[in-house]
Amino acid sequence: MSLSTWTGSSDVNASTRKPIDFLNLPQNVLEDVFKLLDDRSLSQMREVSKFAKNSVDSSILNVRKTEILYEADSEAASVSSEWHHFIQSVAPPKFNCIIPVLKVSKQKIFRKILFIDSIKFLLNVADIVDVISIYVLNKSELARIFITLIREILNRRCTELHTCEMTHVLSQHDIKTILKIIHTMDKKVSFAGYAIPHESNVYSKVGAYQIEYPGYRGPRTGGTEISIKHVDFEG
């Protein structure tokens, strides 16, 4: 096969203008290319053409690892309109919302959202992001459904979940239940939270998951930090 046949271009030796538009690639392949671009190059891609701009904007949630810190507060009156705007923007995304989404891979976002009205919202977020951190002050409401919530969140796209001391302090029974749940999942996940101090709080391995107690104790509840992570988890 001659070089000119393979290259598919009659001016392959030309150093500048080439006649083929890479934007003809299928969307899934284009997203694979976008995943490999740094933020600046991805932004520059939006200046190439209208199609390129729309492709970047609509695929951004697929091509960037997105981390959102979810903060709930029983005193908050309603779900933040900004967050409603964020969710509404997901299909189809609009760039004024995409910019903060791009940024969340660099900086964490705190928003105060009423817990009890926000579970559905939180699960919607879990459908589109990889990492969620929950900070909830009204723990009495959350305690009733905490394990179910962990299961529902990790059953979605989210693979990494952090909860704070004030969200819920896990019992030994809770930890066993979480281990059972995550062992039934097809994916590798990571959970970090707080547990009631116990004499068995040492490093251990259960199935494909390692359990660590880094030693930090929460000042408000006395709960001790716990990390449950798949041995092959790459966060």
Partner: peptide, 25 residues
């Protein structure tokens, strides 16, 4: 894909347009 993405590295949108022959809309 990495080879393609490498061609975009450090380039502005207009430079990418020029290199790949994409018309400015």
């Amino acid at each position: 894909c990495k080879a393609i993405s490498n061609t975009f590295k450090g380039k502005t949108g207009p430079q990418i347009r020029e290199e790949w022959g994409v018309p400015n809309e």
